[in-house]
Structure formats: C-alpha cells, structure tokens
C-alpha cells in the first residue's frame, strides 16, 4: 500500500490488509491527530486498507 504522510513523504509498504488505525499506530501516528482519506474520500479508522490502496494522511494543525 502507498501511504502519503502529512509532510508529503510517500511510503510504499508491503502490508497485509489491515485497519487504518493499526497502520497509523505502526507509523507512530496518533489516529486522533490526523484525518485519513482514500481516493479523496475520508475513511473511518476501522476501515481495512489493502495492498493497492493509496492512503493520504492529513495532520490536523493547531490553530484558531
């Protein structure tokens, strides 16, 4: 699967299908601090993502 990290770095992972939440935790990301999209659509943290998915992780910046 392809992960686009908050700093726009692209990460290609050999990974069995897994819930988004698990993949985030493995990357050291707190799921509460990001929003995850697949094909520009927001997905919930328990959505299982698969090998050919492109996943974008957007960090929620602090600020009024």
């Amino acid at each position: 699967m392809k992960l686009i990290l908050p700093d726009h770095e692209v990460l290609i992972l050999e990974h069995d299908p897994a819930p988004v939440e698990q993949v985030l935790l493995e990357q050291g990301i707190n799921p509460l601090e990001v929003i995850v999209t697949r094909n520009k659509k927001m997905i919930s943290e328990d959505t299982v993502i698969e090998a050919d998915d492109e996943i974008r992780i957007i960090r929620i910046a602090h600020g009024g």
Binding site: K41, M42, I43, S44, E45, D46, T47
Partner: peptide, 10 residues
C-alpha cells in the same frame, strides 16, 4: 449506523 452509506467516522 443510520443509513448504510460508507462511514467516515467511528
């Protein structure tokens, strides 16, 4: 849980 559309949040 309310309409069966794809969920964006749990």
């Amino acid at each position: 849980s309310l309409c069966a559309d794809p969920a964006v949040v749990y």
